[in-house]
């Protein structure tokens, strides 16, 4: 069985992000980490591998040097092999163009299952996974909190989170599943794994290797265009209420009624 995991290196949640004064872009502090949901996806692949049988876990990312870091983390956790998709032509791609490249690379890999994160912490659209599945004509289930593979590995029972509940879904393989919190707890890479990952060879694929024309990748292949960036609107300064509990409670209720007019 071959499981591919889509991973992405993203700015740490605590990294500062500054919108340029002219709105033309953002400056991101250099604090990156493997996307949280992707670490769940890697963990799940390793969990399935741990159940026995002949399972190979390949992690794959689109993105230059930052991408390599994501791959090393995945390898350190225990993935078998890593693929980096890197080519100047991939630059400036939106989710559609990103998924196009990932799908083309995966096409040649004979995968039985693709795992990805529910969303990436940076752009958070949660679009890349289902798009990859669509381009590969394979079913997809998002926001997955449980995966139970049938003994013959031809299908799986999936639990997916929905508002206020869950769905149980039976799906045939190959399938793409996006990991939601609750699926598992990702392991911390062991020291031995980290050392092994440093030396591991990372396979690189460029535009020619995946066999797509330059017109469908990167900026050229994008559907969306970013016009401008804005800063998050600032909340007005907080009104602090201190003192006797009964007094401040009365005050806050008054303010919510008279000033904020929300109750």
């Amino acid at each position: 069985m071959h499981i591919a995991v889509l991973v992405k290196q993203v700015p740490d949640s605590e990294a500062t992000v500054q919108v340029k004064a002219d709105g033309s872009g953002v400056e991101i502090e250099d604090r990156y980490t493997l996307n949280f949901f992707d670490s769940l996806a890697v963990e799940e692949a390793l969990r399935i591998k741990g159940q026995g049988g002949d399972v190979v876990v390949t992690i794959i990312t689109l993105g230059g040097q930052k991408g390599v870091e994501a791959l090393r983390t995945g390898l350190a956790m225990g993935a078998d092999q890593a693929v980096l998709l890197d080519d100047p032509a991939f630059a400036g791609g939106d989710e559609y163009a990103t998924a196009m490249v990932l799908a083309a690379a995966l096409k040649g890999m004979q995968v039985d299952m693709i795992l990805c994160g529910k969303e990436a912490f940076d752009d958070s659209s949660g679009v890349v996974g289902p798009l990859v599945a669509e381009f590969l004509s394979m079913p997809s289930v998002t926001s997955v909190v449980k995966i139970q593979l049938a003994p013959d590995k031809g299908s799986a029972l999936i639990e997916r989170e929905i508002e206020g509940g869950k769905e149980v879904i039976k799906v045939s393989l190959p399938v793409l599943l996006s990991a939601q919190k609750g699926l598992n707890e990702a392991r911390v890479p062991p020291v031995m794994g980290v050392m092994k990952a440093m030396r591991a060879e990372i396979k690189k694929l460029d535009l020619a290797a995946i066999g797509l024309p330059a017109t469908v990748v990167g900026r050229a292949g994008s559907k969306e265009e970013i016009l401008r960036y804005h800063r998050h609107p600032q909340r007005p300064a907080v009104t602090m209420l201190q003192g006797e509990a009964a007094d401040i409670v009365r005050q806050v209720v008054g303010l919510l009624k008279e000033e904020a007019k929300v109750i």
Partner: peptide, 23 residues
């Protein structure tokens, strides 16, 4: 942008060869 829509619409965008803005 519900769980249902976030499951369905990315695929729909792919099938219709169009873009999608989420959330």
């Amino acid at each position: 942008a519900t769980f249902l829509a976030r499951d369905l619409f990315p695929r729909l965008a792919g099938r219709l060869k169009t873009g999608i803005a989420v959330d």
